[in-house]
Design a binder for these strands. Sequence first.
DNA 1: GCCTCCATGTAATTGGTTACATGATTCT
DNA 2: AGAATCATGTAACCAATTACATGGAGGC
Lengths: 184, 184
Amino acid sequence: MEARLSLLQYALLGLLAGRTMSGYDLTKLFEQSLGHVWTARHSQIYPELKHLHEQELIAQTETGPRGRKTYATTPTGLTEVRRWLRETKPNRQPANEGLLRVFFLWLLDKDEARAYLAQEAAYHRAQTQHLKQVEQFMAASPWAERPRVQSIAIVLEAGIRHEQVMADWAEWAAKRFNEDEAGD
Amino acid sequence: MEARLSLLQYALLGLLAGRTMSGYDLTKLFEQSLGHVWTARHSQIYPELKHLHEQELIAQTETGPRGRKTYATTPTGLTEVRRWLRETKPNRQPANEGLLRVFFLWLLDKDEARAYLAQEAAYHRAQTQHLKQVEQFMAASPWAERPRVQSIAIVLEAGIRHEQVMADWAEWAAKRFNEDEAGD
DNA sequence: GCCTCCATGTAATTGGTTACATGATTCT
DNA sequence: AGAATCATGTAACCAATTACATGGAGGC
């Protein structure tokens, strides 16, 4: 059993199963609150919406001002997302530039390496706070409807826990660069 | 200040700064121990090595049987990796298919969702064990030389901590799907 | 009237995967 | 002799980013 569509297509089908939206709405959603999980630009979203519409996996529900078009997932589309969730396995290779860089920190002076890790810690602390804000925001958004709200809360919790351990880890790592004797 | 090379190119320069290797060695390294941080296939690696060689960022150090060619990072290449580490910021958008799927778990029955999260927990527990094995293996590999060994240990620790929290999180999430009343 | 944001699209390029293709060495 | 592994390369295709391009609606 393998995926029949691209991951962006599944992302769009899943999102439009929860709430009817336009390409513009989806773009903003990726930018503002979903970046941690998935991301795409409008230049990728609009052609995919067109494509999904042609395949009748989504349907155009209404048109608004400035040519705004909102879409919803069709029953066929919903069946396909469910099949994907049930019968295929996730692809796991999120190349991690942050870690790749740390792998090469021995190429810098010790104090530069320590400064880098301190920056990393600060970044992950800030991200933790950001996700906690998104959590607040979500509670007051059109997404806060049962049963979706539970899935959203669970994914946010994953993000928060992840950012917290990475912040702790970066602080621990900076200390290790301190303790050991010269590395250059 | 921005990146002048692709991330794969920086990855190759950084790796070849630590140890001379062939395209084949690099391919195996990505497959076997570095997948958590970065990955590339041989079909991408060989053309990039050729390209880096033309730019004199790496140099061919020796040739072996079956046309084996080993490369090392040149001083120019090393300067460029250092500049990248010092003067550019990491790009952070590792699209996470595992989390994307959880975002859509409300589309399945409650017991299916719980089973999915239990599988996720099992996967992350297994990954934790795998990385601990890599940790053992690294101690006995040609990479275990000061000062590189410290950077490697730090990156592995990040992976282990990450896998552990994700496993804990998935178990916690499965319980949340239990406790709440019907979601369909 | 002007600025901001809403809203949609296309084109060119780069990055990455899958598939195709070949052959030498080593181990049993 | 045959299998596994070492070792390198190219081509076709798909995914994603950046840049190009346009225009309407609402607020001040």
